[in-house]
Design a protein around this nucleic acid. Structure first.
Lengths: 264, 264
DNA sequence: AACTCCGAAT
DNA sequence: ATTCGGAGTT
């Protein structure tokens, strides 16, 4: 028996929205402390890791470790029924082992909608993600990261991220033109930190990624105002969105090993 | 000679928009008191009934009963020419018996557009619609009805409407999942009634309809904030949109006679 | 995932 | 009135 209630269905909607272009199946692992999910994208290039601590829920009860796997398409269909500020109860009953029940209740409590989603068996490949020490960590507004990826995608399908003590640059160059975006060390103490970029560079990094995937990741911007990029030469980038300080949505993407990554 | 002037062409646009997916021909019957229209949809499953009392018009003159029939496609083409708040004069002259003339004039009176639409003979099957006593009448925001139909259409092509003293439910269930939506008797006196659902249930009703058609009906939401559903076991549902208290657009749909309609 | 429509805000 | 954003649809 698993039972948990989110104050707002919108959280789940945003999460599913953010991963739907990457993953077809959503294998949720429920433990007494959290719901989590790990999945590789269809082409096994990117990894999605979600964690929702029980602190995010109004109510959370999980007797034993349970796996709730559904197709993302069905999940979307179910969540479409919810208004953003409906509360969202999630129930899984061992008796009816092949379905999960969502109950959406609107604020005024005069509408209640039960939606049943068929479950499927997903061989969830729980990948051990090593605790990586990164050479550079960049924290910036998620909207800026989204715009950066969107803009640079116009020039090529690769983005080169370069971090050094002096600053961080994002580059993309193709036949028709190119662009280099430089973020300088944010000008110290200001009244308003939102909008600022912060970075902590231990060692210089120069690494290339597929913009397409970063663009997919950037869709999670609605989950958090800030995003953290953790990078290291020849190591997958980690793109992390904090979820109300009680969880996260992380994406990992291996670097491209090719040509223009060695340009200074 | 028929001559009538609507203050806003938008009304006619909305009406035609709401019925264009159901009917191909629009046989308007004009009498000294009102313009009306009755038509079955192409597959003879649904019935559309429109009534526009002369109170809706700035000017209304109809010497004798006249039939103005045009193809909906042509009507749409004509109405596309109008801006929403153009006034709309409709003229039919016995001399030019094969056309109807629309004249759109904008608010500032600095543009006037005549559009002629060719008429066609439609064997208008004026169906006597019996005055039905319904077991249950549900009145709700038209936007909610629209969302309900849209959401439930994702699970199957049938919707089961159930009304009892305790509440009203809309259900749809299919292979990948299903949904049950419960509206409770709206929690009494509140400051704001918009958004509320009201129902009056004399006898319990449990009846099944094709969601596809209800979805078509629901497009009329722009005509009125509220919609009234009148239902009775084994009797067509009536879906009614009031038009500025001087007319209505009603849709009728026979229930599906199949399987899951007998579930309590 | 891209396009289009509708509604809301400036 | 125009522009922007969000939502729904193909």
């Amino acid at each position: 028996m698993f039972e948990a209630k989110l104050p707002n269905a919108s959280l789940l909607k945003k999460i599913v929205d953010a991963i739907k272009d990457l993953v077809n199946d959503a294998p949720f692992d429920c433990t007494e402390n959290s719901m989590s999910l790990q999945a590789m994208d269809a082409s096994h290039v990117a990894l999605v890791a979600l964690k929702l601590d029980n602190g995010l829920f109004d109510m959370y009860r999980c007797d034993r470790t349970i796996n709730i796997g559904s197709s993302v398409a069905n999940l979307i269909r179910a969540l479409k029924c919810a208004n953003n500020d409906d509360s969202c109860m999630i129930r899984y009953n061992d008796d009816e082992g092949d379905t999960v029940l969502f109950t959406f209740v609107d604020e005024k409590r005069d509408r209640s909608q039960d939606v049943t989603v068929k479950l499927i068996d997903i061989d969830s490949e729980q990948l051990g993600i090593p605790d990586q020490k990164y050479s550079a960590v960049i924290e910036m507004p998620s909207s800026k990261f989204q715009k950066t990826c969107r803009d640079l995608a116009m020039f090529s399908d690769s983005i080169v991220i370069n971090a050094s003590k002096g600053g961080v640059t994002f580059k993309s160059h193709g036949d028709t033109g190119g662009s280099t975006l430089v973020y300088n060390s944010s000008s110290s103490a200001d009244d308003d930190d939102s909008g600022k970029i912060f970075f902590n560079v231990k060692e210089d990094v120069n690494v290339t990624f597929s913009i397409k995937y970063l663009n997919h990741f950037a869709k999670a911007a609605s989950l958090s105002n800030r995003v953290r990029l953790s990078i290291c030469n020849d190591v997958p980038i980690a793109v992390e969105y904090n979820i109300e300080d009680n969880g996260y949505l992380r994406f990992y993407l291996a670097p491209k090993i090719d040509d223009d990554q060695n340009i200074d």
